[in-house]
């Protein structure tokens, strides 16, 4: 009977219809109870795991970025500190050099002044000695020429004359 009815594709037969409804409902119920919750749980857990891993990776990346920024900040600070130290050292060295130069110049000036003074003293002493020797020589010469001793007054006049002559010669 069924085979005969099946000749028309649009024939509706009760047995396949009822079976389709019943079996499909049983399938839906069985899958809803046994399969879909399990699959949904697995997919949700995987999703949470992936999201968690992504979040952890993002956190790690943020931490690494913060650490890098901190490192770069400290590096820049260290460079600034080093620059400041070098600058200060240069300033100190320059100051020390300036002090040393000033002290040297002072000492040199003192030395020069002292040498000049000594030279003046020596010159004056030499002149005095020369004057004394010239006086003695003049007296001696005059004594010999005059044949007599000259007194103090003559001596003085002779000395002064000799000095004048000595000075006029440019010596």
């Amino acid at each position: 009977m069924l085979a005969a009815d099946a000749a028309n594709p649009m024939n509706v037969q009760v047995l396949p219809l009822a079976t389709a409804v019943g079996v499909a409902l049983l399938t839906v119920i069985a899958l809803s109870v046994l399969v879909w919750p399990k699959i949904a749980k697995g997919l949700d857990e995987r999703n949470e795991k992936i999201l968690g891993e992504i979040k952890a990776a993002e956190d790690a990346r943020a931490n690494a970025k913060a650490a890098q920024e901190e490192f770069e900040r400290k590096l820049i600070q260290a460079q600034h500190d080093a620059d400041a130290m070098i600058k200060e050292a240069r300033a100190q060295a320059q100051k020390a050099a300036d002090d040393l130069r000033a002290r040297s110049e002072t000492e040199l000036a003192d030395l020069k002044k002292r040498a000049n003074a000594e030279m003046d003293a020596a010159r004056r002493q030499a002149v005095a000695e020369l004057e004394a020797q010239a006086a003695e020589l003049a007296v001696s010469v005059a004594t010999k020429i005059l044949g007599r001793a000259i007194d103090a007054k003559d001596q003085k006049a002779l000395v002064e004359q000799s000095i004048k002559e000595f000075a006029s010669t440019g010596r």
Binding site: A6, P9, M10, N11, V12, Q13, V14, L15, P16, L17, A18, T19, A20, V21, A24, L25, V28
Partner: peptide
């Protein structure tokens, strides 16, 4: 093919 039977597809559409 069960789905080549109108009774079956009708049953599914009833759901």
């Amino acid at each position: 093919t069960a789905t080549a039977c109108f009774s079956v597809t009708l049953g599914l559409s009833v759901i």
